[in-house]
Each structure stands twice: as structure tokens, then as C-alpha cells.
Design a protein around this nucleic acid. Structure first.
Length: 111
DNA sequence: GACGTGACAGCGC
DNA sequence: GGCGCTGCCACGT
């Protein structure tokens, strides 16, 4: 898999995240078949051109933690009806996007 | 081409 | 459940 392909796939996946749902870097990496490249997902989004208009605010870390120093992200998510916990993290159990019949995340987050 | 950096995940405490 | 350490890989300098 080339870098460019990897990035394009990341952009594609992010672009199809449904409204009001979130997903994680690790999940995207898993979908690409490279679960060890979670950091690259974040890196790809960081380098994503603005005109892609990606809903990258719907991508959070595996713990539901938001992007550091990007407070607008929380506003955007809450506007979409995403659930938050008391500690300010996203409630993945309620708002994670299950892209398929995979039960990995159901087990992990006890959906 | 080498080195430092980072929008992370996983594991242990 | 929260915090810190380590491994990972692409990017920018």
C-alpha cells in the first residue's frame, strides 16, 4: 500500500462517517488492514487539504479523547448530537460508528 | 539521507 | 478509570 493510497482511503472513510457518529484512528487503521498505523491516520488528516471538506472532527482517539488544542471540535460534535462524558471525552459506547457487522467494537465498548 | 516530531494504540501501574 | 511509557510509521526540516 502506497502512502498516497493510504491517505486517500483515510479521506474516503472519514468522508462517509455518518452525521452524529464518530470513529477512532485505530478503527480506521483496522479498516485499512494496518492496525499498527493508527498514527498515520492522524497524520493523514493533519495533512488533509481543506477543500476535501472532511468531517475530521468525527475522528477521535481510542479513548474518545478529542484533538488537543482544537476546542471547536467538541462544539461541532455536540451540535451533531454526539454524547459526551463528564470528563469531556466522547462517549464511544453511544456514538461510535459501527461501519459493519464487526463485533470487535461492540465487545470493546459494550455497545 | 538522518533526525525529531506527532490529531495514536496498547499495556502496566 | 486515569496517567505514563513504549512502539509504530509517515512528514517536514
Amino acid at each position: 500500500m502506497k502512502r498516497e493510497e493510504f491517505n486517500n482511503l483515510v479521506y474516503h472513510i472519514v468522508s462517509i462517517i455518518p452525521y452524529g457518529r464518530v470513529t477512532t484512528y485505530g478503527q480506521i487503521a483496522l479498516m485499512l488492514g494496518t492496525p499498527q498505523c493508527s498514527r498515520q491516520v492522524g497524520c493523514a488528516l493533519h495533512n488533509a487539504p481543506e477543500y476535501f471538506e472532511l468531517p475530521c472532527h468525527r475522528v477521535v482517539s481510542s479513548m474518545g479523547r478529542l484533538v488537543p488544542d482544537w476546542h471547536e471540535q467538541r462544539t461541532l460534535l455536540s451540535n451533531e448530537g454526539v454524547y459526551f462524558k463528564d470528563n469531556g471525552n466522547v462517549d464511544l459506547g453511544r456514538s461510535i460508528w459501527r461501519w459493519n457487522a464487526t463485533d470487535i467494537w461492540e465487545k470493546r465498548y459494550k455497545v
